[in-house]
Design a protein around this nucleic acid. Sequence first.
DNA 1: TCCTACGATGGACTTCGTCCAAGTCAAGAA
DNA 2: TTCTTGACTTGGACGAAGTCCATCGTAGGA
Lengths: 136, 136
Amino acid sequence: MSDLLRRLRGRGWRMTSQRRVVAEVLDGDHVHLTADEVHQRAAARLPEISRATVYNTLGELVALGEVLEVSTVGRAKRYDPNARTLHQHLVCSGCGMVRDVHPVGDAIGDLPEEERFGFTVGSVEITYRGVCPGCA
Amino acid sequence: MSDLLRRLRGRGWRMTSQRRVVAEVLDGDHVHLTADEVHQRAAARLPEISRATVYNTLGELVALGEVLEVSTVGRAKRYDPNARTLHQHLVCSGCGMVRDVHPVGDAIGDLPEEERFGFTVGSVEITYRGVCPGCA
DNA sequence: TCCTACGATGGACTTCGTCCAAGTCAAGAA
DNA sequence: TTCTTGACTTGGACGAAGTCCATCGTAGGA
């Protein structure tokens, strides 16, 4: 994740201990934490960090395209640091676990012209739902 | 929508004016209202209807499989009465408009075995994002 | 080392949704 | 038709998730 920190610094981000901790919490594959979970983990390292700062920092990371918002599980938004690799999500209906997956095929191409209603289609989000081995 | 009312009656639903109004508000294609919008439109016909009743009724319709929850636009859940025909959604990034669409192809089949992590995959939700003619 | 604009803080506020106790009423029984 | 009863509705309290804002603090350039 020092990669991320380096990129952020290159974009003129003022580096604060709070932002560093949030960025470090959001590290790894198959990470899909809620804002509250990010706050809890960040607070474990930096007890004074406030909820507002976590929301601000997450919002900035999303705006910079470094982190994706995923709204497919439960009520709260989840934050996916794996924004640099195109991928989709596989969600367990039992425990809510989320895995990053890479389907083959061309989902956008599968939408016929007459089904586009004149829209310019730019992207597609796919959520597979199923039951994980642990819940089966 | 009297179709829906008939089916609900057949399932032993006690028919009340509140439930009838909610079911009538949820009529048509490309309808994706929030609970609050359903409440507003229902209240236009039945001013005393309470928010709790709208939430209860929507929850029952979802549980019966007559209505789908769509969580792809904005914060609030939206309710899609077109549950009897398999379809996906096309969302305008500008105004938030949602259209029902029918892609060709086999999205579930496009997920390779080694990308399933042992899950039993049961369904797939696809959200196309783009810009509608009005916003372009 | 000093300045200052950018960032952090926490508490109030909004939105969306759920829960509950009490009152109401749809629809079957008589 | 009237009675009865349990399912349904109501409104207000509550809770979770997220936003806003005035004020304070500090990163990093001069």
